[in-house]
Structures are given as structure tokens and as C-alpha cells.
Computed example of a mutant assay.
Amino acid sequence: MRYSSLDQFIIQQGAALAKGPIAVVLVEDDVEIDTTLRHHLQSGFEMVLALMPAQFDLPRDLQETAHRIDYEMSLVGATEKAINALIKAAPGQWIYYCYNAEYLFFPFCETRAITEMLAFHTEERRDSMLTYIIDLYADDLDEHPHAVSLERAHLDRSGYYALARPDPMNDGHPKERQLDFYGGLRWRYEEHVPAARRKIDRVALFRATPGLTLRDDHTFSDEEYNTYACPWHHNITATVCSFRTAKALKANPGSRYDIDTFKWHNSAPFEWHSRQLLDLGLMEPGQWF
């Protein structure tokens, strides 16, 4: 069903939001919209929302299975505005958000549904899950000038690191159980990426609670939501495998002509399987086996 605005959707589907988990796909352009939606529908989300410009179309099957909401992502603060509205509308529900041409992978996702993982995570008294944004890119930019190819997708198998996250409210001392993570294309081409956008960590999975708000750096107003683990052991983490940075670097006039290929000696074909991401240390199963 199609809705003319997010407000209209919340008014008409408020009762349906009481059953999660909910996936929110924020559509910035017309690249791989259908595959992004289908991927998250197949992951087991109870409801998948497509917030997208009115001029874009959806295939017939997705018109029946996803909730299409007219929304303009080019406006300043569009992400935070949408997610914060849904937080207020769906208290207590798990919400996941991503952009088009981004694909969620979590440990053992080929045989287990997102509901199973979130049930276990909830038992561990966690209300958020850290995800790493792992850049994907086509191996041949002459054949795929927009850097997107599902069949020829590659990723960086190394080059990731973390730094302590300073707390400006505590004389710059590191925040407890919080780190800033870097790597991928944003690290290799950092001269083309604003400093505030170079991190690859995002709390993409979280439970909506009254008063919670998403900030413009993909962190939340509740600092516990921004932690990578609880105090007593490691928790599950997940990855969002994303063409978003590669698309931006090839679309931006300032970087487009400086990049002939994204491949380097640490590139590897992406296998579209959680085992590869676990083997590379790009996500953590925690105590979930």
C-alpha cells in the first residue's frame, strides 16, 4: 500500500506498528531499491517500510509486501526526522534502518531469522546492536561506472581499526564501551570524505523507547545504546554491507575522476554469506551459537 506521507502512514498503521521487528529502508536514489527491500523481507522482519521519493516506482510484488511511503531524503535531517517519528510511534519495538543498496547480515542469517537473533539479544538485556558498515564495490568501474554490481561485488578483507571515543563532557576521557570504527573506502579515500562521515559504525538495530532520539551521527541520546557490548561479556554484532560510499565517491565530481578502480591487494569477492563476514572478523556472534 502507498502512503503520501510518514504522518499518514503512522495514523493509518499505528496499530500494526505494535508488532515488530520493523525494517526501514531510506531510499536516496533509484539504485537496487527492489533487491534491498526483498533482502530484508526475506530476513524475517514483520514489517518493511520503504521511505522513498514519489517519482520512484516499485515492482508489483513489493507494492503488496512492503509499505511504500512518499518521503524526500534530500532534505537536511531526513534520516533523523523519519527514525525519531517512528520511535515515538512504535515504543517497545525493534527497529532497523538502512539505505537502498545496503544489506543486513547477522551471524547465521542463512538459517535463522532476525526474530530469533533479537529474542536472544533481548534475553541478554540489550536494547541496541552495533552494526559495521562494510563497503561493497564493483570490481570493474568501466563496466559498472556507478560502482554497483551484485554479481561482481567486492569488499576489503582488512584495513579496519577502532579508536577510543572521547567524551566532551568528561574532559575528553574515553567513553565506556564505545569506540569509533574506521576502514573500507572511507578510510582509503578519506581525502574525499568529510571527517564527521568517516566512521563505519552505526547502531542500525535498536529497541524504541519513550524519549529516545537518533542524532545526526548515527548515535542515540541514550549513551548505553551506543555501546558495543554489555559490561560482562561480548554481545552479538552485525554488518550492513553497503554500496552507498562507492556510489557517492563515483557520483561526486570531486572524486569521480580520481578513482579508476576500488580494487587493491586486500580486495576479495563478496560471497553474500555470513560465514565470510564472521571469518574476516567483521561481526561477532557473542554467546549465540
Rank of each mutant, 00 (worst) to 15 (best):
A268W: 04
L155E: 06
D135H: 09
W288S: 08
L277W: 03
Y182R: 00
T131Y: 00
I83K: 07
L6T: 03
E116Q: 13
D201F: 02
I200Q: 02
F105T: 02
V76K: 11
V25P: 06
E72T: 10
T213I: 02
A113N: 08
P107N: 05
F181R: 10
T131N: 11
A195M: 13
A113G: 07
E28Q: 12
H173S: 15
H265P: 00
S255P: 04
A85W: 00
H144A: 08
G211F: 00
R165T: 15
S221T: 15
L212R: 13
A78Y: 09
S267L: 10
E284L: 04
H154D: 00
Y228W: 14
P253R: 12
T213G: 00
A54C: 06
P166Y: 01
R244Y: 10
L185K: 05
P168R: 09
D222Q: 14
L282V: 07
R256W: 00
R38S: 11
A268N: 02
F220R: 07
V76A: 15
F262Y: 03
C109T: 07
Q13K: 13
L155M: 10
L280A: 11
L17G: 10
S74P: 00
W272T: 04
L26W: 00
A23R: 10
A251Q: 09
A54E: 09
N226I: 03
W264L: 01
A229Q: 11
A164V: 04
F56N: 02
L104K: 07
E124V: 03
D260L: 13
L163M: 12
L49G: 07
Y160R: 08
H154Q: 13
D30M: 04
D180E: 04
Y99R: 13
G211H: 03
D217H: 10
A66N: 11
T219W: 01
L282E: 07
A147M: 04
V240K: 04
F206L: 12
F220A: 05
F262A: 05
H273F: 02
N252F: 01
L163I: 08
P269K: 14
Y99P: 00
R275Y: 04
L62Q: 11
P91W: 03
E191C: 05
E80W: 01
R60S: 15
I95K: 09
Y189G: 01
Q12A: 01
